[in-house]
Design a binder for these strands. Structure first.
Length: 200
DNA sequence: AGTTGGATGGTCT
DNA sequence: GACCATCCAACTG
């Protein structure tokens, strides 16, 4: 992933969640096509970015052929290049908060300055913050080698992931069986995966 | 280590 | 008017 204004930012996607079809009651497509989710019905490889909880943008990759609403939520990225730019972007996003007094803002900025790289894009809202992604990126062709925001195939020398499939997170409202499908894919070998940190 | 609640605004019934 | 594909601080044990 690269960006226009700043230095190149690159990372491995280490956590994804699948949302598949209109009958998936956890999916934004569960209401049928709307102004928000329309790109989910289009061709695959396109970015779908939405706002959750009034504060966090989330990046999705449209997956199924046109006509079938589906997407992958990018839940975590392990930074490889441009760590400083990601850190700066995280800090910058904080400054946009309305009711955050200067002292609290400074404390947050300090905390971000001390974060290990593996924490910079650890969670879907943080992926967008670290990479300066917002809803205006919706519609981007992520497979276009010239796009400022894009996904690329791994290099042959890249470390292989350790795939692990788990239930999806934060979708209790959908109820079973949607809460039980193991449609969350993580690279168990990465420390950048979201959720509770193991070890001390 | 685990739980709770506040921030914040768009989206949908 | 309710809910939300989140994150973090502040609390409790």
């Amino acid at each position: 992933v690269a960006d226009p204004r700043q230095r190149r930012r690159v990372g491995r996607i280490v956590e994804l969640e699948a949302y598949i079809g209109e009958d998936d009651l956890a999916s934004h497509a569960r209401f049928g096509p709307t102004d928000r989710n329309r790109v989910m019905y289009g061709p695959p490889g396109i970015a779908y970015v939405y706002l959750v909880y009034g504060m966090y943008d989330c990046l999705n990759i449209v997956t199924e052929p046109a006509g079938r609403a589906a997407a992958l939520l990018v839940r975590a990225v392990e930074p490889l290049e441009g760590v400083d730019a990601m850190r700066a972007a995280r800090t910058r996003r904080l400054a946009g908060r309305r009711r955050l007094d200067p002292t609290a803002l400074e404390a947050h900025a300090l905390r971000i300055a001390r974060l290990p790289p593996s924490d910079l894009a650890r969670g879907p809202g943080l992926v967008a913050a670290a990479l300066d992604i917002d809803r205006s990126a919706t519609g981007t062709d992520l497979l276009d080698p010239g796009a400022p925001l894009r996904i690329e195939a791994p290099e042959p020398e890249d470390r292989l992931p350790t795939p692990d499939w788990t239930p999806r997170v934060g979708i209790a409202y959908a109820g079973p069986p949607w809460t039980e499908h193991r449609w969350r894919l993580v690279d168990a070998s990465s420390t950048a995966v979201s959720g509770r940190r193991s070890r001390t």
